[in-house]
Computed example of a mutant assay.
Amino acid sequence: MTGEQQQRQPLQIAYSPCPNDTFVFDALAHDRVPGAPALDVTFADIDITNGMAERGEFDVLKVSYAVLPYVLGEYALLPCGGALGRGCGPLVLTREAGVDLTGRTVAVPSEKSTAYLLFRLWAADTLPGGVGEIVVMPFHEIMPAVRDGKVDAGLVIHEARFTYQNYGLHKLADMGEHWEATTGLPIPLGAIIAKRSLGARQLKLLADSIRTSVQAAWDDPEASRAYVMEHAQEMDPTVADQHIGLYVNKFTADLGEDGYAAVRGLLTRAAAEGLVLPLGSEALTFP
């Protein structure tokens, strides 16, 4: 297929139905960005898109930064469209307050997620004896498992930081607070990647188009509201707006120096702990 034919074909893209992603991609997905490549959109949660990236499926994907070391041979990290933030890190929850997790069993939603990497880095800094068994289970089962004593602790994300007290649980530690306190950097959450085979010209056009789509959403938030709420899974509009306000920020428009430092810092530290493959020196370079 020639480059010209590639440009005529819609790009196969998968991102989550979460408000931040639909807000970011609304204008682009609805052909309101002049000259932008057409998109064929599939909605999938990030644990699904991580696997798609490892299998080389789709042209463009929203993935966890934790999966980058395994996919950057085939995909390039785009400098925009993703999610980095502050004050939004995962939590470690326990049934009793002040538990020492040394040698204890911890439930996690995935071992290929930023949350898991942040947890292991926190444990390396604060638990010289190390944690015990790691149990992967569906996210919605973690807090009940901790409450019922099936595991000693659970690693939770997103809305669980607002609901864990309903389960009678205690916050042992905030992984985001630890990361920000020790690095001063934002928390790398979700990345936008695109196949290198699209070529430098198409990749740059895609990145410019995403930036334009983000700016259009900021300029006229109401224009994206129908798309956001259609996929927000009965989320209250006020909560959706708070979600967007937290995860769509200056790093979404451009990673910038601090954004790239956060990504490289997370993955370099994680590689030093043997949690991910080492990054090549040029792995994060954008064409």
Rank of each mutant, 00 (worst) to 15 (best):
A217M: 02
V71E: 00
L198R: 15
G154I: 12
F162A: 06
F162Q: 09
K112P: 04
L61W: 01
V108W: 04
K150E: 05
R147P: 01
I192T: 13
G256E: 03
L11P: 01
V92Q: 02
A124V: 03
V63P: 04
A124Q: 06
T212I: 08
M235C: 09
R120K: 02
Y247S: 12
A262C: 05
H30T: 14
G81M: 11
L266H: 06
E177N: 12
L78M: 07
G89E: 10
A76G: 03
V214W: 12
P128Y: 01
V239R: 15
A14Y: 11
P237G: 14
L185W: 11
G81C: 07
I210S: 02
L206M: 15
Q233V: 08
V239C: 10
I48G: 01
G132L: 10
K112A: 15
D258A: 12
L189N: 10
G73I: 11
P90N: 14
T2G: 14
F23H: 05
L68C: 11
D241M: 08
D21K: 08
M143Q: 05
G168H: 09
L185H: 08
Q12A: 06
G51M: 10
A270H: 07
K204Q: 10
A44T: 05
T252C: 03
V131W: 09
A262N: 02
Q12I: 00
Q233E: 13
D21G: 04
P109H: 13
D45P: 00
A232M: 08
A123H: 00
Q6L: 12
I48F: 00
T126H: 13
V71I: 15
S110E: 11
Y70L: 10
G176Y: 15
Y65Q: 04
D174S: 15
S64M: 06
L77F: 04
V71L: 01
R201F: 13
R269F: 06
Y65H: 14
A160E: 00
D152C: 06
R95L: 15
D152F: 12
N50M: 06
F286C: 05
K112G: 08
L267Q: 03
A44S: 01
